[in-house]
Nucleic acid binder design. Structure first.
Lengths: 261, 261
DNA sequence: GCCCCAAACAACGA
DNA sequence: CTCGTTGTTTGGGG
């Protein structure tokens, strides 16, 4: 459920709390979806300084001074928590990182679906907010795809960071119907799409970063999202919001959007 | 187009003409679909004795005494020719094998789609006429497939040798509708299917082997096939032959066949 | 609603 | 209506 904006807000918070600090201890619960032996990870990063926290797509990368990286994906229901080490640790945690500044970072997930990767390969697709993700790139990739544009935007092998909610927002902002076939979207619309990706996400980042706790993003979305929002009946333009299904995902859209097919 | 029975007839003919003979020369045209450098193949088998000709699925395997094997798949329109070396070679040939008994084996294909493999991997699926292809095997594989039974029978990764034409014949003989879902076909019907596979193909092998030239199989099919046959209006049981489409293939069937779905 | 995997399915070319 | 490849869809599981 957390997409690029929420992960960006988490990044700010976690970078502010821990960058430069040294990891004292880390733990992973037995059901944690970790792609390496917990002991190997612990042995590698215990005692290491957290040099940088990076967001890429919907993942956070914890870069340590040893050169090791721990990547966290929250999947549907995961969340981050920052708390003093002496506090009672949250019971739904799957991973714990304790630092020498007296604070701990917890990855919490009731379903334990959050995924943690140790020294992962570099992502192949560009991040949605990177400069590589421009109209040229989109034109090239859209030209040889016959799937729905919404499915394209949420495909993390094409563009990293966009999920179901913000894909609807972006498509509405660019006036492209979510069911449109990728290779039928004309160049002008692709240019609008490229702009909308950056604008919609940048504004969302601001909104979510303004929250006290990024985990409260659900409420904020009901306030900020313009069409992917079950509490709204009409778009800002006054058009009735419709719902449909595109490749197994619920989509919200209006007839202000043009269907290319 | 040639399926198991036609390839069996070719095998008899080619084995009779060449087994025990020594390869004098071989050639491949530039557009021949050969999965190894022509020079490497030639260097390996020139001067070698042809120890055995084997049919497996819709392929013929030419086994040489060196341990090398050349596998030929005729695809849609390929055919074999046996002729004295001094005869004019056929102009649509993609491969030529000349033997020390004065005869040559030609692979002919107007479209040059026939595929030739050098020392191929052993096939994973059982041949339709092997003892491994019994009711037990079919029950096991059908149980975890949700596709149409006709698509299953023609899937060379499940059963080797059956194509569009004989799949219809086999399904009619076992009174199973081609559109039936694999995992819905009851055990009794699977047993009938296993029997029909062997009986229908064995009879077809006899029919095609009786031809002077296996390449004439098209005419023979119009005489012998009971339902996959555009010249017939009724099955032997008097039922009207219907046509339909199953996974992009034309299918002939009657309502004597039970649909399991 | 997230991702991964495997199977099924479609389109195209040779 | 043959096979291989590539890309897309679908269903199940965590």
């Amino acid at each position: 459920m957390p997409e690029l904006p929420e992960m960006t807000a988490y990044r700010e918070k976690i970078a502010g709390a821990f960058e430069g600090a040294t990891l004292v201890e880390c733990e992973f619960t037995p059901d944690c979806k970790l792609d390496a032996p917990a002991e190997a990870v612990t042995a590698a990063i215990r005692g290491a300084q957290l040099s940088q926290v990076e967001r890429n797509g919907k993942e956070l990368f914890l870069h340590f001074a040893t050169g090791d990286t721990v990547a966290v994906h929250l999947m549907l229901g995961g969340r981050f928590n920052v708390a003093p080490i002496e506090d009672e640790p949250p019971d739904t945690r799957v991973a714990t990182f304790k630092f020498d500044n007296g604070k701990a970072l917890y990855v919490r997930d009731r379903d334990a679906w959050a995924r943690i990767k140790f020294n992962p390969e570099a992502p192949k697709a560009p991040d949605a907010l990177s400069s590589e993700l421009n109209a040229e790139y989109l034109k090239k990739r859209l030209a040889r795809s016959r799937k729905a544009i919404k499915a394209f935007l949420t495909d993390q092998d094409r563009v990293r960071g966009i999920g179901n909610a913000y894909s609807d927002e972006i498509l509405w902002a660019s006036r492209v119907a979510p069911q449109s076939t990728c290779n039928k979207v004309p160049d002008e619309a692709v240019e609008a799409l490229a702009e909308a990706i950056h604008e919609v996400l940048a504004e969302a980042v601001e909104n979510v970063c303004a929250l006290d706790d990024p985990s409260d993003y659900r409420k904020a979305r009901l306030r900020d999202l313009k069409v992917h929002n079950h509490t709204r009946e009409f778009s800002p333009g006054g058009a009735k919001i419709q719902t449909g299904e595109v490749s197994k995902s619920k989509t919200y859209f209006t007839d202000e959007q043009v269907l290319y097919s």
